[in-house]
Simulated scan of single mutants.
Amino acid sequence: MSARVPSTRVPSLYLVTDSALCGPRGVPAVVRAAVAGGVDAVQVREKGASDRDLLALVRAVQEVLEGTGVPLLVDDAVDVALVAGADGVHLGQSDLPAEDVRRLLGPQMLLGLSVSTVEQARAVPPGVVDHLGVGPVHATPTKTDAAAPLGAGGVRAVVEAAAGTPCVAIGGIGAANLHELRGTGVAGVCVVSAVCAAPDPRAAASALRAAWAAPSGAGVAR
């Protein structure tokens, strides 16, 4: 593969959707509110959905995001992302190899990859992915097959092993514990239930963004 310069569009407040947590409001409505509150990237993740249903949801979220400049990534389903013309794809460790997916996506689409260990971070091929999702930071019910919680120290070790690839932390993150990630080197945070399950997704997103933008001296992880 020829040399590639990864995108500089690294999310600082990244929302992963969950239809069950969004409830009767629906994913598009929650996304609309969350973006108004400061979310700057959205990943549509619907593990149990058929390809047709996932495509329909992706397109509905695309309509909400039109004109906002907020990128839309699709979890796992490379084919759906390409058909929909999404901005990118997010892969897990059991999905297709990142190098092969990059060849399918081309150089412009975003590509994220989940990592949970130092070894996984070191194995990421240079220049292939745009960012890594590091976690889980804490135990989370939104992903039943998640690895053991890393804690702030574990996140820091994985970020260091990533050797400059931008990282976002995920897993059990909320406005109350966001300060734990200061000093770990992550470029941003990724949330699911903290926004999707919130009574007011816009206010929840705004609180998360405010917590992330708080003075860097507050609560630095040791």
Rank of each mutant, 00 (worst) to 15 (best):
D95R: 01
P107L: 06
L96Y: 05
G69L: 13
P97Q: 13
V129L: 09
D75C: 00
A139H: 12
P71N: 08
V137A: 10
A98V: 14
L132C: 13
G106T: 10
P126R: 15
L82T: 00
D87K: 00
Q93I: 07
D87M: 02
V128T: 15
L91T: 03
H131C: 14
L105Y: 10
D75E: 06
V64R: 04
Q120T: 02
V101G: 00
V129C: 08
Q120V: 03
S94Q: 14
S94H: 15
G67L: 14
G88S: 12
D76G: 01
D79H: 13
G112V: 03
E99L: 15
A84N: 04
L111W: 01
V137T: 08
T68D: 07
G106N: 07
H138E: 12
A77V: 00
T117Q: 04
V137L: 09
E119Q: 14
V101M: 03
L110D: 02
L111S: 01
D130V: 10
P136N: 15
T68E: 10
E119D: 15
Q120G: 12
A84T: 11
Q93S: 13
V89P: 00
V70S: 07
T68L: 07
L104T: 00
L91G: 00
D76S: 06
A123N: 10
V78T: 12
P97R: 08
G88Q: 04
V137D: 03
S114W: 02
M109N: 07
V128I: 13
A121P: 08
L91E: 01
Q108I: 02
Q93V: 15
A139I: 06
V118E: 15
V74F: 02
E119T: 11
L96Q: 11
V115F: 06
G112S: 00
L73H: 05
G112N: 05
V128L: 04
G106M: 06
L111M: 06
G127L: 12
A84L: 11
A84P: 05
L96F: 09
D76T: 06
Q120C: 05
G135I: 04
D75Y: 00
A123K: 12
G85F: 12
L132V: 11
P126E: 11
D87E: 11
L73F: 12
R103P: 05
A81Y: 02
D79T: 13
S94N: 13
G92F: 00
V128H: 04
L72E: 13
R103L: 15
H138C: 15
P71I: 12
H131G: 03
L113D: 03
L132A: 09
G112P: 01
T142F: 09
V74H: 03
R122P: 00
L65E: 05
G67P: 14
A123S: 15
E66F: 11
Q93W: 07
A98R: 03
G127A: 09
L132Y: 01
A98K: 05
A77G: 00
D79I: 01
L73S: 08
V137F: 14
G67V: 15
A84M: 07
G85V: 11
P136F: 12
L73I: 11
T140V: 09
P125K: 10
E119L: 15
P125N: 12
G67K: 14
D100L: 14
V124N: 08
V128W: 04
V83F: 07
T140L: 14
P125S: 10
D95G: 10
Q108Y: 09
V70K: 08
A121G: 09
T140K: 11
V74S: 00
V134F: 02
V74M: 02
T142K: 10
S116T: 14
R122G: 04
